[in-house]
């Protein structure tokens, strides 16, 4: 009997939760219930599974009962859209990757789900090199090369537009969701021309986010995915980054404002803003990755405003009212 290799027993708590969409078709009540239980148990591995009936749309996995009369049609539809399949059937004598015999236990199903959902798909030439997520490879490539790429991973579709340095997402997809699954090996990519995108995908991917916003969102959720920056690097921000309240915590605004005002080293900025050093280091990584970092005090005009002592107390009240505690930090 072939079984998937045993999994590590504990998933670190700092591993981001990954979301998956699993469809079910042709399962009897017994297997449907066991599938639900098996899906819920994946949360222990920080895998969140949304289970829904098979609709013919792309998803991460189809669990199908082959003994059902409608199974053949669902199987054919799934194959047409390259959805991986876990089949359960009386004719399967033993378990094997992608197949289970009738009467499979919750544990059997759970193990298959885990290995199939995390398994790399058969992909073409654009499979990412180890270490750098595919989306980031495309984002950092020469803009003159094929400008539009469509990335897909299960139910998530992302357009990477190198010409405008942006990505397009479906209405319900957040940047944080994309970032959480950025290093998943199951992403596939294909170049797409502008006309095809406009006619077939633009209406499905109406949200636009700049690469800058993406890099700062990565800095918040998956900083290890950004290229590292030397611990003693000194840099300043060329511009105020494209930040959004959903993707960046308000506590980051003070160090960002400081980096916008003048050059800093990570240790000094962390101390001045009373922030963890690794958080500030993540900001530096995002600044460099997004192209906003100036490594020397280049010719960017600085607006030096008059410091009025009478304003300080009132200003501190205003800041506190909006949730900022500016006067404990950022004193150079």
């Amino acid at each position: 009997m072939v079984r998937p290799p045993p999994r590590c027993c504990v998933t670190p708590m700092n591993t981001p939760t990954r979301s998956f969409r699993v469809a079910a078709a042709g399962l009897d009540m017994l297997h449907q219930t066991r599938l639900k239980l098996a899906c819920s148990m994946l949360l222990a591995e920080r895998m969140e599974v949304v289970l829904h009936p098979w609709s013919g749309d792309a998803c991460d996995l189809l669990v199908i009962g082959l003994d059902h009369p409608d199974a053949a049609r669902a199987l054919s539809e799934a194959n047409a859209v390259n959805v991986p399949i876990l089949s359960i059937a009386r004719r399967h004598a033993d378990a094997a990757p992608g197949r289970l015999p009738h009467g499979a236990t919750v544990r059997d199903i759970n193990e298959q789900l885990s290995s199939l959902l995390l398994a790399p798909p058969g992909m073409g030439n654009e499979r990412p090199a180890a270490g750098t997520p595919l989306l980031l490879q495309l984002a950092s490539a020469d803009p003159a090369a094929s400008a539009l790429h469509l990335l897909q991973r299960g139910g998530i579709t992302v357009l990477v537009d190198r010409a405008t340095r942006s990505i397009a997402l479906a209405p319900g997809t957040t940047l944080a969701e994309v970032v959480a699954q950025l290093d998943d090996v199951a992403w596939s990519a294909s170049p797409i021309d502008a006309a095809t995108f406009r006619h077939q995908y633009a209406y499905r991917l109406p949200q636009r986010h700049s690469f800058e916003a993406l890099y700062f969102c990565i800095a918040r959720h998956r900083p290890a995915l950004l290229p590292p920056v030397a611990e003693h690097a000194t840099l300043k921000l060329r511009h105020w980054p494209d930040l959004h309240a959903d993707d960046v915590p308000g506590t980051w605004l003070l160090p960002i404002a400081c980096l916008h005002a003048r050059p800093w080293q990570p240790a000094a900025l962390a101390a001045a803003c009373q922030m963890p050093r690794h958080t500030v280091q993540s900001l530096f990584c995002a600044a460099v990755a997004s192209g906003l970092a100036l490594t020397q005090d280049a010719a960017v005009p600085r607006t030096q405003r008059r410091k009025d002592a009478s304003d300080s107390r009132f200003f501190s009240w205003v800041a506190r009212r909006f949730g900022l505690n500016l006067f404990q930090g950022a004193q150079p």
Binding site: W240, G250, A257, H260, A261, R302, F315, G323, L324, A330
Partner: peptide, 10 residues
């Protein structure tokens, strides 16, 4: 908050 942080840093 961004405006206030910017003002403070400047």
């Amino acid at each position: 908050k961004s405006l206030l942080s910017y003002r403070y840093a400047e």
